[in-house]
Design a protein around this nucleic acid. Sequence first.
DNA 1: ACGTAAACTTGCGTGTACGCATTTTTCCTG
DNA 2: CAGGAAAAATGCGTACACGCAAGTTTACGT
Lengths: 217, 217
Amino acid sequence: MTTPPGLRERKKQATREALREAALRLAVERGPDQVRVEDIAEAAGVSPRTYNNYFASREQAIVSAVTADREARIAAAVTARPAGVRLTDAVTQAVVEQYTNTGEREQQALLLITTRTALRDAFLDTTADIEPPLTAVIAERLGDTGAQTARVLAASVAAAVRIALEGWLRAAGNAEAAEGFGAGGLVVPSGSLPDQLRAAMAPLAPAFDAAERSTQP
Amino acid sequence: MTTPPGLRERKKQATREALREAALRLAVERGPDQVRVEDIAEAAGVSPRTYNNYFASREQAIVSAVTADREARIAAAVTARPAGVRLTDAVTQAVVEQYTNTGEREQQALLLITTRTALRDAFLDTTADIEPPLTAVIAERLGDTGAQTARVLAASVAAAVRIALEGWLRAAGNAEAAEGFGAGGLVVPSGSLPDQLRAAMAPLAPAFDAAERSTQP
DNA sequence: ACGTAAACTTGCGTGTACGCATTTTTCCTG
DNA sequence: CAGGAAAAATGCGTACACGCAAGTTTACGT
């Protein structure tokens, strides 16, 4: 199915990885605001023009060092679940798993991201990337008649994940708001990231169940 | 509740409207690619710097001439439905209504938008704008305990609308694909805009019903 | 009515985004 | 193993995005 990637593709990925690496390292070293595209390009050994062939903005390179190939991993995690589990659970578990199994280095980068609005926005934008692969795996479970449904559900998941991350970033950003109110805690979860993700996914469960039911009566 | 808007606010809206108008007119006159921000600003009687205080990109001004205050109209249309109807139906009807009740001028602008990828993207991006007002009206119907659910549902609606518009734009863009296949029509609706919107909203109905049910047993 | 604070506009400077044309590298086929 | 096609990198030029520091207008309290 997949021919071993040629030198062309490997070099491309190497360049992308070098840009990621350079962007994150420089951002950590001197602070996110003291890094220009020109610096990143130079550190990665390419021209600034080439940088923009890989990343559309300065922030994307930094953020992509954290997100890497999260989309593919989420899709793989969904298909890895046994066929018996509810689709809703499979997707939720896969999302939680891939957003929390984070390494040392990624944790540090996340902390950096929370400090700048532009970086937070770029990070939140990456949630949209999970939509295409999710659409594919959901469509596979729903059969060909549910293609449109799969697209809508995948997009809804991406939206739910974004909302969860927003809430989590907000809580992480200003930790003083945690004690601001007294008993309003019922409204907003504001808990850990896995909790936020599960809470955001929950409202979509009935839609998943209905879609799954309509294919296997 | 609302104090009559002062001179300040009225002038602001006038400037915004002038920029919209100028952007659309110039785009129609000379073609979308032959219009620079400087031209739009000049035609509207402001500096280019001021233009960017209102619109973040060149395309936004053109697109906003079509979308205007669609977000507010959709939210109002939802609350205008009698309290008896299902929330899902209220939202769907409101969305369909506001995206199809289009005037002469807007129709022409839409045609223009379909001709350029950058404009189509900017147009699709505007679907995200309906999310905050939709969140508010849905939250009102669900009560205070469903705040998070309201956010997820509103975001899902925005995503569904975006998918519907993508499908419609694709169909409108290359009309030759309509006869490309024979009986594959079961998979992709590819019909009129109202049909696309209703089809995209349908998978979310169970989620809306469940949310509504959990508040009024 | 006046003065002050807040909001808006503007000019300027820097950094980024991207189209186009050219050069370099990789790939494939005879 | 050539040699040409395809893809990528690069240089260059232009236009856009935006922070900052004025200057200008509106709003509001005394």
